[in-house]
Design a protein around this nucleic acid. Structure first.
Length: 276
DNA sequence: AGTATCTCCTGCGTGC
DNA sequence: TGCACGCAGGAGATAC
């Protein structure tokens, strides 16, 4: 399940193979993703030159003179660069191949098909899936003062707050759990009840956990063409996520679990008190 | 208008 | 061994 660090790692991995190449062909084997693939996508992309690859929230953006290809990996999507020897080996759920003038192929695989591949000729910042998004978590505009201000405007829990893409992008369920643990904040407290010092700790920990995950994801970059296409947090040490009933690494309390907005939520009752 | 719930999908773990 | 089942989750759409 790619979160922001996995998307960033993917961007860094594919960028060197894509920039300044021409798309020579596109093979689409499965049109039914989160949104249907446009029937003319292959025609639109073929013969276009890729200018650069960027990222906004969890969208990978492949930029051309005429527009942008927006790729979201959803829950289970991945992108791989394949060299000539690998191109004949087709795996299950290999939905799209984008053939490049340098001989490599960019292959999109997505078992659960929650992802999307969309073309837009709009200025990307004005696209409806992008325009309303909150700040990038690693930029300065995401800070304690900002988060505190947003928290005052919302009637939801602090966990729901930081997972809201209009407030801040890229904080998925795993990193929401981890950053709240590291900031010693109970996930269920009302956002409005957060103190300034808690906002400070929370923004710091969100940035820290994402930055560390990106760094560890980077270790897979060197064999990106041969990797399984799923770099990321698996290699990373998780303090709280998925550890229901196990002992907290800090205080040895038993880690608790409940569901919040249909999402698995974990916390340590001692490290993350529900009252201040 | 702001929140909460629903929804898409396949792979995996569990229990019989 | 195999089957049925429940669960997992990003985030837009839909329902309140």
């Amino acid at each position: 399940m790619p979160e922001l660090p996995e998307v960033e790692t993917t961007k860094k991995g594919i960028q060197p193979y894509l920039a300044n190449t021409t798309i020579t062909g596109v093979i689409i084997r499965q049109f039914s993703l989160r949104w249907p693939i446009a029937n003319d996508l292959a025609d639109v992309l073929t013969n276009q030159i890729i200018n650069r690859v960027s990222r906004r929230a969890k969208y990978l953006l492949i930029e051309f003179d005429k527009g942008t290809l927006m790729i979201h990996l959803g829950m289970s999507g991945s992108l791989r660069i394949l060299d000539k020897l690998e191109q004949g080996i087709l795996g299950k759920h290999d939905h799209i191949d984008i053939e490049l003038s340098n001989g490599y192929i960019l292959r999109y695989n997505d078992p659960r098909r929650f992802g999307s591949v969309l073309w837009t000729s709009d200025p990307i910042s004005q696209h409806k899936l992008i325009a309303h998004l909150g700040p990038e978590p690693l930029l300065k505009e995401f800070n304690a003062e900002y988060l505190q201000r947003q928290a005052q405007l919302k009637r939801c829990s602090v966990k729901t707050l930081i997972m809201n893409g209009k407030v801040v992008v890229g904080v998925g369920n795993i990193y929401a759990n981890e950053s709240l643990f590291l900031a010693n904040i109970h996930p269920r407290i009302p956002a409005q009840s957060m103190s300034i010092s808690q906002s400070v700790k929370l923004t710091e920990q969100i940035k820290s956990v994402l930055e560390r995950a990106i760094k560890s994801g980077g270790t897979t970059l060197k064999d990106f063409t041969n990797s399984d296409g799923k770099p990321g947090y698996f290699a990373q040490h998780l303090n709280i996520y998925g550890r229901k009933g196990e002992d907290c690494f800090i205080c040895k309390s038993r880690i608790q679990h409940y569901k919040e907005s249909q999402r698995a939520t974990y916390y340590c009752p001692l490290c993350q008190p529900e009252t201040n």
